[in-house]
């Protein structure tokens, strides 16, 4: 070959670069999960059925049904805003979740999850789920994460005992 060594290395380097870019692009498109709110999910409707999605919402306590024999868990979540800034404006996560649960006009989403019932699943918890939406608008979660803002430990002790009274 008459190519200079420098040329060979340039070509080799470009090939590796191309390979890495290909891996990143193809893996991103193959496994990207849209992070949606309940409103956004309802707006998209069936166009996103059977795609991998991440959805978050406020758990409605009285809707939780759990069958320990089949480990099937069913509950309903209500829309909460997705923007951190908006949540802060509306008084923090705990307040936003509380409002979502008591407001009957919010959009709702039924969720089915097969697995043991997590301790943190309770009224006004924030559920973050990964899974797919079926044709009937029911969300089948593969993964279920829960956040209870009220449980976050305070850095400052509550004023209790003799000093407070």
């Amino acid at each position: 070959m008459s190519q200079s060594p420098k040329m060979k290395f340039m070509v080799g380097g470009l090939l590796i670069l191309a390979a890495v870019i290909y891996l990143i692009v193809s893996s991103t498109t193959a496994s990207a999960q849209y992070f949606l709110t309940v409103d956004e999910l309802k707006a998209k409707g069936n166009s996103i059925a059977n795609r991998d999605l991440r959805v978050s919402g406020a758990v409605l306590g009285e809707t939780i049904e759990y069958d320990p024999n089949t480990l099937t868990l069913k509950f309903v979540i209500a829309h909460v805003p997705g923007e951190t800034a908006q949540i802060d404006d509306e008084g923090g996560l705990a307040e936003v979740l509380h409002q979502a649960v008591i407001d009957p006009s919010r959009q709702k989403l039924t969720v089915i999850y097969v697995g043991a019932k997590p301790d943190l699943l309770r009224n006004e918890a924030q559920a973050i789920m990964t899974g797919k939406l079926d044709e009937n608008g029911v969300f089948h979660a593969d993964e279920l994460l829960l956040k209870c803002p009220t449980r976050y430990e305070e850095a400052v002790p509550e004023q209790s005992g003799p000093a407070g009274n």
Binding site: A19, V20, L23, I24, S26, S27, T28, A30, S31, A32, Q33, Y34, F35, L36, R54, G82, T130
Partner: peptide, 17 residues
């Protein structure tokens, strides 16, 4: 639109490397 990637992304992209 907020789009996240999870473990499958990393496994797929880093596996060959």
């Amino acid at each position: 639109q907020k789009v996240t990637v999870g473990p499958p992304f990393y496994e797929r992209a880093t596996g060959p490397l």
